[in-house]
């Protein structure tokens, strides 16, 4: 049975989709900011989701034997699910990175900024979609289930909403109703992830080959899910306090936002790592 070098992929599929969703949510919220200075503050902070995606992408190259040939993936859009995923993430990085650099160095005309950031958001949505279906491979029945894209998209949506709320605290925070919507979206997404992973666990029991029973693949599956639930609850608690408790200092507020982002991403990583452990082909 193949021993996968999957940690770098788990890091990539944690950071990149979450960062891309955070970019989209921040872009949506930015469009509702009326004043110019406020928009510019958000533009500066868009560096955070961009850097998250970039660092995830760079980490993912660690599992390549010959990363120097990586350019050949770019020429292969449409060739395979993996090339679609890589090309779409690169398109996002290009659009988001160029927007950020342009936006912080000069005053962009309103329409230009709007169109650019919208293009980055569309690229982000496409890239999250391609990443979520890149594992729907017919010969790997343990991955080729509806729970794979469901858990990935829900995990990214939740972490993206939570990150956006946290990042906006650095720009003075959002209106309480918006903060509430983002935190509720995070909580609901976590529930979807948990449900998808529990249903996958049940399905694994039904998948058997000569070599292995799929349910035996992921060590400590239930314990992992327990840790996911705890880190997600911790993330939610920390950010709730940071967003709604007016008496705490700015320093504490920002520290809580960072801690909550870390806990949320750690939770998603645990689930992603668990997913890679369920690898099994239909064959030998």
């Amino acid at each position: 049975m193949l021993e996968l070098d999957s940690t770098s992929l788990a890091v990539f599929t944690t950071l990149a989709p979450a960062g891309m969703v955070a970019f989209v949510v921040m872009a949506l919220l930015r469009s509702t900011v009326a004043d110019h200075a406020g928009k510019r503050r958000v533009d500066h902070l868009l560096a955070i989701p961009f850097l998250l995606v970039l660092s995830g992408f760079i980490t993912s190259t660690a599992h390549l034997g010959t990363p120097t040939n990586a350019l050949y993936v770019i020429t292969g859009a449409g060739r395979s699910p993996l090339s679609n995923e890589v090309v779409s993430v690169l398109a996002f990085l290009f659009l988001a990175g160029s927007y950020w650099m342009a936006a912080i160095s000069r005053d962009l005309p309103r329409q230009v900024a709007g169109a650019w950031i919208a293009a980055g958001s569309v690229a982000a949505i496409i890239a999250v979609g391609f990443t979520s279906i890149a594992y729907s491979i017919e010969t790997i029945p343990t991955w080729n289930t509806i729970y794979t894209p469901l858990a990935l998209v829900a995990g990214a949506l939740g972490a993206g909403c939570l990150l956006s709320e946290g990042i906006y605290l650095f720009a003075g925070g959002l209106k309480p109703t918006r903060s509430t919507v983002l935190l509720v979206a995070y909580a609901l997404s976590c529930l979807v992830v948990l449900t998808a992973m529990v249903l996958l666990r049940i399905e694994l029991d039904t998948i058997t080959t000569f070599v292995a029973k799929a349910s035996g693949l992921a060590m400590g599956y239930d314990v992992r899910l327990g840790f996911y639930a705890i880190s997600s609850a911790g993330a939610l608690c920390a950010l709730f306090n940071a967003s709604f408790r007016e008496e705490i200092s700015t320093k504490t507020r920002l520290a809580l936002a960072c801690a909550s982002a870390f806990a949320a991403l750690w939770g998603v990583f645990l689930v992603r790592d668990l997913f890679y452990q369920t690898y099994m082909t239909v064959g030998v």
Binding site: L2, L4, D5, H63, L64, G65, T66, P67, N69, A70, Y72, V73, S80, L82, I137, I140, Y279, T281
Partner: peptide, 8 residues
């Protein structure tokens, strides 16, 4: 690129 997808 030695990504091992074919192996997988």
């Amino acid at each position: 690129i030695g990504c091992g997808t074919c192996v997988q």
